[in-house]
Design a protein around this nucleic acid. Structure first.
Lengths: 251, 251
DNA sequence: CGAGGCGTTGATTTGACTCAAATACCGTGG
DNA sequence: CCACGGTATTTGAGTCAAATCAACGCCTCG
């Protein structure tokens, strides 16, 4: 059971501080955020709070809107505060892989930021989302002034690397049926229940296939099998929430 | 054509500086190393050079010796100056995957260092090797005093993440024959030619299988096929160097 | 000599891909 | 509301690559 990111953290400080432009060190801009307590910008020194407050801008994303493109310049680092974003990598041969799902509280663009590379992936919202953006230039300035921030970003990177290695090593030998089951569990754990208590998968079969490195037809067949076995109650993108436990037991 | 790490860099400053304990800021301990110019410890401030010089210790590893174990405490960060090291991840079910090959000039243990986690992998020398070790405690002290060092470590981490994502996305759809060919190319590019100009693969068939996430029998058969096609001149672990170009052309 | 590790080979089975076609789904405009 | 076109999904049949199971040769080491 991977705990995606830091959803389900405590709620941080109340909103009020944000609206009053104090004469003293300004309130931390992230304090208004649900994930503020864990923000990578949390340990910013007072002197830089102004810079952070000025450069940090909230931005809503509609479903399917793209935040940055593969090969594009790494001009900012983002923090996802709501929604769900997919990182995709397009191969020269035309195929694509779904490299990562970004959940609220996690950050995007840190790899490019740290490596000073262009983006290797495309980031696109799967559902309506909201990000906070800090331009690379200001981020570098802030990091220079409070190195602890760099440590936090690096830590996210290290965690991601660990996750990926785990996945790589664990998933290979387990068969696609198991891997698909895990993916769906992850997806429905991260989804908000909608009217009728049902859950809507944020990924198409295509996307699930791209996430697992298999073909869409295979996903269909595997889902069919899971349904036949009574493990998964699914219709189109709609899933009965009580499937989770049974699904989690799939070997 | 992946350039592994920083082999083939310029040779750095001459050895002489190391032996004289100057009254002025001591010579940089890494200046003696072939990879010194790119050392993650390069930007260490003068005040910390003493700490670095004291805590950095060279350690030879014989083939098959293990540097750290999976689940063990992250008590140091290492830089490989010669040889070849394999990072393996053992799964609860007994299987194992070869997660990474570390070439000279690259560093080990940085993931655990950055994430402040125990090691997720085991590091074991494939051939006689040599590492330089800096204990976590001193590394933290140095990093605190010269944050640029943290930036360098983080950068290595980001690069590794990028490599892994690339591999994940690119390799899947290309077939195991192609992937094996690439692996062998990488291995012989990294190997020192021995007597007779032949090259010795540092990996067993088992290990190659573990690196590609396939079975050892399959590796045997694929190698057989490559040989039949005249692409690879191989006998046991011995490879004719001129196979490289032909191998590199495998689709 | 026997045991064990590694590498090879063969026979068989399984699972996923491919190609192709039928069907369901969805937003649009009438 | 419905028909429409386009996309996504499902289903089927045939093919192929790799896993699996089993056996054997080779070599080293005790």
């Amino acid at each position: 059971m991977r705990m995606h990111g830091r959803r389900s953290e405590k709620l941080g400080k109340p909103m009020s501080a944000r609206s009053r432009p104090g004469p003293k060190p300004a309130a931390h801009p992230c304090s208004a955020c649900r994930f503020g307590a864990d923000s990578i910008w949390q340990p910013v020194v007072d002197a830089q709070r102004g810079v952070l407050a000025r450069s940090l801008q909230r931005r809503p994303l509609s479903a399917d809107e793209t935040l940055f493109v593969q090969g594009g310049p790494a001009d900012a680092i983002y923090c996802l505060s709501a929604g769900l974003i997919a990182l995709r990598s397009y191969r020269p041969d035309g195929g694509s892989a779904l490299v990562r799902l970004v959940y609220p509280g996690e950050i995007l663009g840190f790899r490019s930021f740290l490596a000073r590379d262009p983006h290797q992936t495309e980031a696109r919202a799967l559902v309506p989302s909201r990000v906070c953006r800090v331009a690379t230039r200001e981020a570098q300035q802030i990091v220079a002034a409070s190195p602890e921030t760099l440590g936090r970003i690096a830590r996210r990177c290290a965690e991601e690397l660990g996750r990926l290695r785990n996945w790589q090593s664990a998933a290979v030998k387990k068969g696609n049926r198991y891997r698909l089951a895990r993916l769906i569990v992850q997806l429905i754990e991260g989804a908000e229940p909608e009217a009728g208590g049902r859950l809507r998968l944020p990924l198409s079969r295509q996307d699930m296939a791209a996430a697992l490195g298999i073909e869409a037809e295979t996903v269909t067949r595997l889902i069919g099998r899971l349904r036949d076995e009574g493990v998964l109650a699914i219709s189109g993108r709609w899933v009965e929430p009580d499937s989770i436990e049974r699904l989690a037991g799939v070997t």
